[in-house]
Deep mutational scan, measured.
Amino acid sequence: IINNLKLIREKKKISQSELAALLEVSRQTINGIEKNKYNPSLQLALKIAYYLNTPLEDIFQW
């Protein structure tokens, strides 16, 4: 999986903590996703895309 979450999140000036709060997950979860240590569920990936107002395929590429 190619993961552009960190790049997109930083472009939008959103911290890991802010995104985690919006998604109701821990900051460690966001960190793990960004470091490719954790693959989000489809539901979480869709929520990330929604809150970042970015197409899912721009954030994650399988």
Rank of each mutant, 00 (worst) to 15 (best):
I1S: 11
I1F: 15
I1W: 15
I1M: 13
I1R: 11
I2Q: 11
I2F: 11
I2D: 08
I2T: 10
N3H: 04
N3G: 04
N3T: 05
N3C: 08
N3V: 07
N3Y: 02
N3F: 03
N4S: 06
N4V: 05
N4A: 06
N4E: 05
N4H: 10
N4Y: 07
N4Q: 07
N4F: 06
N4W: 05
L5A: 02
L5Q: 01
K6V: 08
K6A: 11
L7I: 13
L7E: 15
L7C: 13
L7T: 14
L7P: 08
L7S: 14
L7N: 13
I8H: 08
I8S: 04
I8E: 05
I8N: 05
R9V: 03
R9W: 04
R9L: 04
R9H: 00
R9D: 03
R9Q: 04
E10F: 06
E10W: 06
E10G: 06
E10D: 09
E10M: 10
E10C: 08
E10S: 07
E10P: 04
E10A: 06
K11G: 11
K11C: 09
K11V: 08
K11T: 13
K12V: 07
K12P: 00
K12G: 03
K12D: 02
K13Y: 10
K13N: 15
K13E: 14
K13F: 07
K13Q: 13
I14K: 06
I14V: 11
I14Q: 04
I14R: 03
I14D: 01
S15P: 05
S15K: 10
S15I: 03
S15M: 05
S15R: 08
S15Y: 05
S15E: 06
Q16F: 02
Q16A: 09
Q16R: 09
Q16M: 09
Q16E: 05
S17P: 06
S17L: 13
S17F: 12
S17W: 12
E18T: 11
L19K: 00
L19V: 01
L19A: 02
L19I: 04
L19F: 06
L19R: 00
L19N: 00
L19C: 03
L19G: 01
A20W: 02
A20G: 06
A20N: 00
A20H: 05
A20C: 04
A21V: 09
A21S: 11
L22T: 07
L22M: 13
L23T: 15
L23W: 02
E24M: 11
E24G: 15
E24P: 04
E24H: 15
E24D: 13
E24K: 14
V25I: 10
V25C: 07
V25F: 02
V25S: 03
V25Q: 02
V25T: 07
V25G: 01
S26T: 09
S26N: 13
S26W: 03
S26P: 15
S26L: 01
S26K: 09
S26I: 03
R27H: 12
R27V: 15
R27K: 15
R27L: 15
Q28G: 14
Q28Y: 10
Q28F: 09
Q28V: 13
Q28T: 12
Q28W: 12
Q28R: 14
T29S: 08
T29N: 04
T29V: 15
T29M: 13
I30H: 00
I30W: 03
I30Y: 08
N31Y: 08
N31C: 10
N31H: 10
N31A: 12
G32T: 10
G32C: 15
G32V: 10
G32A: 15
G32I: 08
G32K: 13
G32S: 14
I33V: 05
I33Q: 00
I33H: 01
I33W: 10
I33S: 02
I33G: 00
E34T: 04
E34K: 02
E34V: 05
K35S: 14
K35H: 14
K35L: 14
K35Q: 15
N36K: 09
N36F: 12
N36G: 15
N36T: 05
N36R: 10
N36S: 12
K37V: 13
K37R: 13
K37Q: 15
K37H: 14
Y38F: 15
Y38V: 14
N39S: 14
N39C: 14
N39P: 12
P40Q: 02
P40E: 02
S41I: 04
S41V: 04
S41K: 07
S41H: 06
S41A: 05
S41C: 06
L42D: 05
L42T: 07
L42G: 05
Q43R: 13
Q43D: 14
L44K: 01
L44V: 06
L44C: 06
A45T: 05
A45N: 01
L46C: 14
L46H: 12
L46Q: 13
L46Y: 10
L46M: 14
L46K: 12
L46W: 07
K47A: 09
K47E: 06
K47V: 03
K47Q: 09
K47T: 04
I48G: 00
I48Y: 00
I48Q: 00
I48K: 00
A49Y: 02
A49W: 02
A49F: 03
A49E: 03
Y50I: 07
Y50W: 14
Y51T: 13
Y51E: 06
Y51F: 13
Y51D: 01
Y51M: 13
Y51I: 15
Y51Q: 09
Y51R: 06
L52H: 00
L52A: 00
L52I: 04
L52T: 04
N53C: 09
N53G: 11
N53I: 04
N53D: 15
N53S: 11
T54Q: 05
T54Y: 05
T54C: 08
T54P: 01
T54M: 06
T54I: 06
T54S: 08
P55F: 04
P55Y: 03
P55S: 08
P55C: 06
P55G: 05
P55L: 04
L56M: 13
L56G: 02
L56C: 07
L56E: 04
L56Q: 03
L56N: 03
L56A: 05
L56P: 06
L56W: 05
L56S: 03
E57M: 09
E57F: 07
E57W: 06
E57L: 09
E57S: 11
D58P: 01
D58T: 10
D58F: 07
I59F: 05
I59S: 00
I59H: 02
I59Q: 01
I59N: 02
F60Q: 02
F60W: 10
F60M: 03
F60D: 01
Q61N: 11
Q61Y: 13
Q61V: 13
Q61P: 15
Q61I: 13
Q61A: 11
W62M: 14
W62I: 13
W62N: 11
W62E: 08
